[in-house]
Design a protein around this nucleic acid. Sequence first.
RNA 1: GGGCCUGUAGCUCAAUUGGUCAGAGCAGAGCGCUCAUAACGCUUUGGUUGGGGGUUCAAGUCCCUCCGGGCCUACCA
Length: 571
Amino acid sequence: MSRILITSALPYINGIKHLGNLVGSQLPSDVYARYMRARGHEVMYICATDEHGTPAEIAAAKAGKPVAEYCAEMWQTQKAIADGFGLSFDHFGRSSSRRNHRLTQHFAARLDAAGLIREVSEKMIYSNADGRFLPDRYVEGTCPNCGYDSARGDQCENCTKQLDPTDLIDPRSAISGSTDLEVRETKHLFLCQSVLAGQLEAWIDSKTDWPLLTTSIAKKWLRDGDGLQDRGITRDLDWGIPVQKGDAPWPGMEGKVFYVWFDAPIEYIAATAEWADATGQDDGAWERWWRTDKGAGDVRYVQFMGKDNVPFHTLSFPATIIGSGEPWKLVDYIKSFNYLNYQGGQFSTSKGRGVFQDQALEILPADYWRWWLMSNVPESSDSEFTWENFQAGVNKDLADVLGNFVSRVTKFCRSRFGEQVPEGGDWTEAERMVVAGLTTRLAAYQAALDAMEMRKAAAELRAIWVEGNEYLQAAAPWAAFKTDPGRAAAVVRFALNLIRFYAVLSAPFIPHAAAQMLQALGLDAADWPEDVEAALSALPAGHGFATPDVLFAKITDEQREAWAARFAGGR
RNA sequence: GGGCCUGUAGCUCAAUUGGUCAGAGCAGAGCGCUCAUAACGCUUUGGUUGGGGGUUCAAGUCCCUCCGGGCCUACCA
């Protein structure tokens, strides 16, 4: 048994996320966590909301609520949605927690003591009407290059020229539209990542088994231009973690907070501490996951994220950890994903284009989404959601191949033998062949999941389901029943055991349906099969079951068309 | 502008990292079965691997070039 620490990238707090946010971190990490638990490993699976930063403040203002209240409510909402999708976090924390405040301030103090923090004085745009400094992208104006009138302060969307907000002609606040802007001098703390660049590069180079996507992004940042740049880790905002050296004030930094990307990854650790608090345990309980001097030496730590998160997880956060000089656990493997597009374009929160997580759960059970998203997860390149593909995949895989198998076996048994596992007959060559085939398939399935190759794992699982249909067709218990009822009984007994087998193996991907299958068989739980032959003999003759309802109703053409129209845009 | 990824059957993806006639699922066609959610099984059509050039005994894989798609470029997160 090993100990596996799993973190999913933190969803940002400013509203309900669309499916793209699920597919690249939360779902694959959940499949992995469920699988590893099923294999008997000790798992700590952590996620949290990422609550700080300008967008959170703006979203709260739009909702007409104090930001703390807004975040608390949105956390509840996101938690409920995560539960709805069956995400099995050991703890779903908040980056605004007391634990994260203390830990973030602690890390800053350690970095400062190590000489890795320097003060930088910067000129920033201040909006008098908004009463706040504006990040570059929140300053709009006319592009000096092409004349586009809605260019942003970081880059002109029209001509793609990189800009400085002070370059803009007639600059205005993107928040209020106010032109009452001024340049103000402000002091910020920078993390001296450049000092650690050599260590970081050596560390990245040692990770030869990481996805290409992960290492290529990391190396790009390490080597581009003048190499890894120092990074500002503080902001002039109200909502956030106050800049302090541990418990002590930080002279000159009064009224400032840490940058959201500094405190967000630290929340992985803090959320584990929140978990210990919530379950009434002491610090040792979470430290044994995170401190290599306190028991985390044998932990394998895996992170899941979309590609946009990779620089912060390969460089900034490791710089924080390494720079602290303390024995915190560094990530062992980073599984990164590309983007999921929607019907030929991007999912768009602002345009209401695509399916949002709450809407997804309204229209279909979680397992439909889990299955399709994971069997089409963007592992090697961006992938695309279309309603046609979604309908075809779900109907064929879940309804026809798996659901119908459960249906045909249980209904046939009920009509011929009644609702208990039938007695009589013995295994023949046919059953032994299936056991041999499934043993090979199971090994491939496990290998894919061990390697976090989600598409491959899904394909193997599907192939395992198909074996059941092939077996039934060949064994034809409906024909055997007429001449040799004992043989038919043996086939049905074997097939009912296959349902149990499928429930166990499918649970990482479709936990709700798997639970229904077990429940129909009158079981609360079932162990992962270490031996296929034994697993397929687990249900004895005489064991009662209940013929389940249709496991997966098919998506009709009418539904598909209605949804395609509803989610085309304009939420 | 710079960097990275990507282009394989109508669709979605594989191909042990340079090594048998480039494979699977879906869709299409034919046959079979009748237990089942008109479900299942078997067989089968379909590819000059985006175009062109090069290296090699051997290229989907490496190099050059052109064309298309995408991402990143450090204050959105």
